[in-house]
Nucleic acid binder design. Structure first.
Lengths: 101, 101
DNA sequence: CTACATTTGACCTAAATAAGTCAAGTCTAA
DNA sequence: TTAGACTTGACTTATTTAGGTCAAATGTAG
């Protein structure tokens, strides 16, 4: 699930048109269309607005936002999956380090 | 293991000084010092050079290069780990999709 | 066919990032 | 105590990315 897909899903399941949601977010509907197909990214502040409009957990939107961004980086990479593993290891290592201090 | 750490490790285990390696890469030694501590990133072309100098697999350097970049993005994120999972899922999903066609 | 929803392509500007340099400061052994 | 190895901070310039707009093209139900 990408952020774009999730937004589209939330929007449609609440019977809203792009123009309506776009206006709530104060962006053009052409832009929203691209956001829903992951051709463009939303500003991060918009996530909070979305979370309120659809009563959907902010943390999940946040994870999708970052995750989609990461995916854009690795999607055409030979070593994409390994790179994700590397990042994961560094992240858990850092956590342990911090816990020690 | 970060890319910087790996480079330092390779360099030291081959008894080379920063100035020597820096000159092979045609960069300043101050810059290399920062690269080794992940304060700066190397150009990607440099990875091939490193791979040859140290006779170390390019693919691994590549994975470290991208991985370290990903880590920089997620390291201060609440949802960092989840975001990595999201990206991983998208990546494997895409693979399946491609395999179907 | 035509009205409305959506998608797409071309374009734009401001802000951020990449990829360094250089000089000064620090560390460490001899 | 001083040379050589390394680190750090301040700065720079060129390129990329973010975050859009707008009009035209396309999809689609009635």
């Amino acid at each position: 699930m990408t952020l774009g897909q999730k937004i589209k899903e939330l929007r449609e399941s609440s019977g809203m048109f792009q123009r309506e949601l776009a206006s709530k977010l104060e962006i053009g509907d052409g832009f929203l269309s691209k956001v829903e197909s992951n051709q463009k990214t939303l500003k991060r502040e918009h996530l909070l607005t979305l979370s309120k409009i659809f009563n959907y957990p902010f943390s999940e939107l946040n994870a999708l936002w970052i995750g989609t961004k990461l995916y854009e980086i690795v999607k055409d990479e030979q070593e994409g999956l390994n790179a994700l593993k590397v990042a994961e290891q560094q992240l858990s290592y850092e956590k342990i380090e911090n816990a020690r201090n």
